[in-house]
Design a protein around this nucleic acid. Structure first.
Lengths: 217, 217
DNA sequence: ATTATAAACGAACACCTGTTCGGTGTCAAA
DNA sequence: TTTGACACCGAACAGGTGTTCGTTTATAAT
């Protein structure tokens, strides 16, 4: 049975059993728990199925360790069961100043926000900033919002970035388009006009905007 | 030791050990795992501390069950370790139509979004809607955003609600202020003016806006 | 009918895991 | 000094848990 073939009915039931048991108890089931749930009387047969599921990447196991089963990332995705990622909140984003430069080598982080992997997608190089002030209205971003950024110094055409405009001394969040010798910065608010920067050296990409979260008060 | 006294240094280390082990392995530590981590050589001494933590409500245990430990809700909160809540996505929100009425008695839900409890706060009666169109720009809400709503037919002054304006046949998201005989609807965009509804019977509260999530493309 | 494969069966084993029980050491208060 | 509370120790026990090994059953292909 190759990894591309559909899961058997029983394998699906085993995965669901692991997910539900985890949710309810906070720890994974034993092979005998699983057997009782899906109607297999022999622990070795459950082991056989767990090996299949492990080979196909839906679970991971720690051998000889009691309850040593966990859902893999793809297993969790299949089951609609998400895990939590801790994103460091590094400071604020405001129009009149550049955003903080993240140092991911630091292990000791202060403030964090916990988000599910499913709404984040790729979690590499992410950090969070709190929005301060109302000068980002053109990006449909409100004072107090949290912006999730990916640390990068370059973005593709059409991606939304935190841009530091050197001559203006100003941070702005806009979609960036490199057009020949100049840069077009397009607001998220579709009723507003773009701005054009003739000298690309004035445009400093500080990060890519991945997500905006607003907790309404 | 009463429940109101601070945790000892060692108890804090044990809680952190449980959280970290869970995150890394996907299952809780054994008493011997915990002992090795925090420098206690006897499993019965670990048991003693786990009993203290259980009595004070930070963990729950299933007796005689291997790795039968879970963080309680308050334990998880203390540790900044969040659990995941599944919010049903019931449909769309667009200006020209009323929003779907949630039926929480239905157990079988279709689409959901998984979010952490920590960014949601009180999770009662929550559901999600996808924003369609650009007619909610005055609420700083963008086509494609996800809005988290709480089902309610009334809101306090100053709370942001999905309001169905009966005579206009239009949904709008604004802060609601009941002022004598009329209603003031204030946009989230601070540069925009409020609208006033003289006849409160034209104002139908469909839900309270709790959160906005934008996954930037 | 035969063969191969997958998926189950069951018994037994090794060792992991929580628990019990009795004890020691430290500290503070009387 | 004595007492009590707290927090640890260690040995041993009971049973829980994963694993091994050989067997059986069902199904599909030849």
């Amino acid at each position: 049975m190759s990894a591309w073939e559909p899961l058997t009915e029983r394998q699906q039931r085993i995965l669901a059993c692991i997910r539900d048991f985890l949710r309810e108890r906070g720890y994974p089931p034993t092979v005998r728990d699983i057997g009782r749930e899906v109607g297999i009387s022999s622990p070795s047969a459950v082991k056989y199925q767990l090996e299949q599921l492990e080979q196909r990447g839906f679970i991971e196991r720690d051998p000889r360790s009691s309850r040593g089963i966990r859902l893999s990332a793809s297993g969790a995705r299949l089951l609609g069961s998400d895990d939590v990622v801790s994103i460091p909140i590094l400071g604020i984003i405001a129009a009149g100043e550049p955003i903080p430069v993240p140092d991911f080598s630091l292990r000791d982080v202060g403030d964090t926000i916990e988000l599910t992997r499913g709404i984040l997608g790729d979690i590499r190089d992410l950090y969070a900033l709190r929005v301060q002030g109302d000068s980002m209205i053109d990006a449909l971003i409100h004072d107090g919002d949290i912006v999730i950024m990916r640390h990068t110094r370059q973005v593709e055409n059409g991606e939304m970035a935190a841009v530091w405009l050197r001559d203006r001394g100003e941070t702005t969040l806009k979609r960036v388009y490199w057009e020949g010798g100049r840069v077009r910065l397009q607001p998220a608010n579709p009723t507003m006009s773009p701005i054009y920067i003739d000298d690309p050296r004035q445009v400093e990409i500080q990060g890519k905007v991945m997500m905006v979260i607003r907790q309404v008060r």
